[in-house]
Every structure is written in structure tokens, then in C-alpha cells.
């Protein structure tokens, strides 16, 4: 949640945080402080460092450490000066140097590096232009507050107990915060991750349903097209069918003949469709710089469906062909 506070009270104090910790259903409250600063390593200054002040609890609920260790309760006092750096910073400032255990200078103090952050593979990272940015360094939030000079905490992560309902906890938090800010408007905003997730999933499900619907319509149209074509083909070839029957073709044989033609059509269409689909995906991956992933399962599913469409929509015309009376068929000139 974000707590800009009011003109009278900007942000939360430690006591306020304790109030929040007491709210039913919560399993931890983690204040967050962000600021931009400069770091000095071996005499080199890096001006565009993003500082994230976090608490020990943060690391219990977020798996961000790749090596080294997270902050512990002992680091929160303000006396310890420990930090956790990310790969961007390492690339820019500590290439070839030992990382864990080294010290860097931040905001006038020497901080020891105790951990390295994982690289997140979010799309955000793919877009971040690292030329204008020198990396992110995490320090205890108490140190960050001193660095920034802020009087209150304006950003907090609240963790929900396993069997608590996010809606209820949100309500309770709101009550508590309203108490703190005397029901002032816009003093805070709560972002409920669970409901956010739910709405994202709903959107995703809706999109999938829509795409599925569109695909189904396309298949249906295609299938009807095939059936139509087959019916025309059968009626054009009644003489041929009659002849084949006169020469001894069993009805099943005629049916197979036409079914085969329908399936060939539909599978051929399926192959073209798969080809175009993969082509669009490849172009898209180059244009959007997203990884191109080839899924054989999807291809098989697509081809399987086109096979199915061919069989389903070709069956009726094929059956009709097999049932033609040979004399009527031969008679039609």
C-alpha cells in the first residue's frame, strides 16, 4: 500500500506500523523506502543508483536473493550498514572484483555487501535502458530513511496470514489507517494483490475464451466450407460414382474416397495455418523482443483439429456419395 499521508502527517511512524502489525489476519508489515543516490566504489562514483530500503520481513515473503544472505533483525537497528546489490550494479561498478564482503560508500557511510539480488525476468527489465541507470542497491529501511531525511514511511508491504481472507484484512487495514489519519481523504491507497491477481486472471480467462471463440468460429466456417465443397464435388461426380459402383466399388470404398479428399483439404489448410501462425509469432518475437517459443503441442493440436474438422464435415457428403444409386448416377449426363 502507498501512504502519502496528509499535510499534517506525511507517512507512518514506527508506532503506526505496530498498530498495523496488530491488525487481525496480517503476518508481517514491511516498510519500504525508495530514493535515488550515488555510490562510490574504489574511487569511482556512480550517480544513478536506485536505493530500496527494505526490512528483514521483506525477504521472508519475497525470494529475491541469489547469493549471500538477506537482512536479519539485527541489521535493522540502523547501526549495521549492510547492503544487497544487483547485477546491473555489479556489471557497472564491480566488474572483475570480489563482490560479497566488499565495501562500498553510500550516503556518507561504508556499507558491506552481504548479498546479491536475482535478476528478475520481468518484461520491465527487458525494456529498462541501462545506460541511464547504474543499478539497484538494497539497504535496511532505517538507514534509507536517514539517507532520505523523510519523517514517515510512505510505502508498506503487508503480508496476509495463510488462512485469512484478503478482503477482510484489507477492510481491517483500512479501518486502522483511517484511525491513524482521522478519515482524511486520499491519505492512503491499498493495493490488494490477491484481487489484482484475480482480475488479471479473469481478464486472461476472458481473452482466452474470446480467442477460443474466434478460433471455433473460424473452424466452423472452414468446416462448413469444406462440407459445401464436398457436396458440390459429389454432385458433379455422380456419373463417376455410378461408374465406380458398376465396376464393383463397395459403398464403404466410395465413402473412404471422398472422406480422404475432405481430410486432405482440411489438413493441408491446417498446415498452411500452422505455417502462417508460426511466421507471425516469429515476426512478433523479433519486433517485440520477446523470446520465440515453439510448442509442438500447439502445432499437433492445430493439425489434430483440422483433421477432425475434415472428418466431421466431410463425413456427410462422403456418406451421401456412397449411397448413390448407381443407375441414377450413370443416367445423369
Amino acid at each position: 500500500m502507498s501512504i502519502p499521508g496528509t499535510a499534517l502527517k506525511t507517512g507512518l511512524t514506527e508506532r503506526d506500523l505496530d498498530t498495523l502489525r496488530g491488525v487481525e489476519g496480517t503476518a508481517g508489515v514491511s516498510p519500504q523506502v525508495s530514493l535515488m543516490s550515488a555510490a562510490e566504489v574504489d574511487g569511482e562514483v556512480y550517480k544513478k543508483i536506485s536505493i530500496d530500503g527494505e526490512s528483514a520481513i521483506y525477504f521472508l515473503n519475497n525470494d529475491v536473493i541469489e547469493s549471500g544472505r538477506p537482512f536479519g533483525a539485527a541489521d535493522m537497528g540502523g547501526e549495521a550498514h549492510v547492503c544487497i546489490v544487483d547485477h546491473t550494479f555489479i556489471r557497472k561498478a564491480m566488474w572483475g572484483k570480489k563482490v560479497l564482503g566488499s565495501t562500498i560508500r553510500l550516503g556518507g557511510y561504508e556499507y558491506q555487501i552481504v548479498g546479491i539480488q536475482k535478476d528478475s525476468d520481468s518484461m520491465l527489465n527487458a525494456y529498462t535502458d541501462t545506460s541511464s541507470y547504474d543499478g539497484t542497491i538494497m539497504i535496511p529501511y532505517t538507514n534509507a530513511m536517514n539517507m532520505s531525511g523523510a519523517s514517515g514511511i510512505t510505502s508498506v508491504e503487508v503480508y496476509i496470514a495463510k488462512d485469512a481472507s484478503s478482503g477482510t484484512v484489507e477492510k481491517n487495514l483500512r479501518k486502522a489507517l483511517n484511525g491513524i489519519f482521522n478519515d482524511a481523504d486520499n491519505a492512503f491507497s491499498i493495493f490488494n494483490m490477491e484481487s489484482l491477481m484475480k482480475s488479471i486472471n479473469t481478464t486472461k480467462a476472458m481473452m482466452q475464451a474470446m480467442l477460443g471463440g474466434i478460433a471455433s468460429i473460424a473452424l466452423l466456417v472452414g468446416g462448413i466450407g469444406i462440407m459445401n465443397m464436398m457436396l458440390v464435388s459429389v454432385s458433379e461426380r455422380t456419373k463417376e460414382i455410378g461408374l465406380r459402383k458398376a465396376l464393383g466399388a463397395e459403398p464403404a470404398r466410395i465413402q473412404t474416397l471422398f472422406l480422404f479428399e475432405a481430410v486432405t483439404l482440411s489438413v493441408f489448410g491446417g498446415l498452411i495455418g500452422v505455417g502462417i501462425g508460426e511466421l507471425i509469432a516469429a515476426i512478433g518475437s523479433v519486433a517485440l523482443k520477446i523470446k520465440f517459443s515453439f510448442s509442438p503441442g500447439a502445432v499437433l493440436l492445430g493439425l489434430g483439429f483440422s483433421l477432425g474438422v475434415g472428418i466431421v464435415f466431410g463425413w456427410a457428403p462422403a456418406r451421401r456419395a456412397s449411397r448413390l444409386n448407381p443407375i441414377d448416377a450413370l443416367r445423369s449426363e
Partner: peptide
């Protein structure tokens, strides 16, 4: 129907006025 198809195949050879070739 199946047996008739067989009979047409093995017992009878048709020759039509209009040839009826494919």
C-alpha cells in the same frame, strides 16, 4: 449391398454406349 458390389466386380463386365471412361 456389399455382395452385390462384389458380383458386379467379378461376374459382370459393363460396356456402355458412352464408354464411361475416367
Amino acid at each position: 449391398e456389399k455382395q452385390l458390389a462384389r458380383i458386379r466386380n467379378r461376374e459382370i463386365g459393363f460396356v456402355f454406349q458412352a464408354f464411361q471412361l475416367l
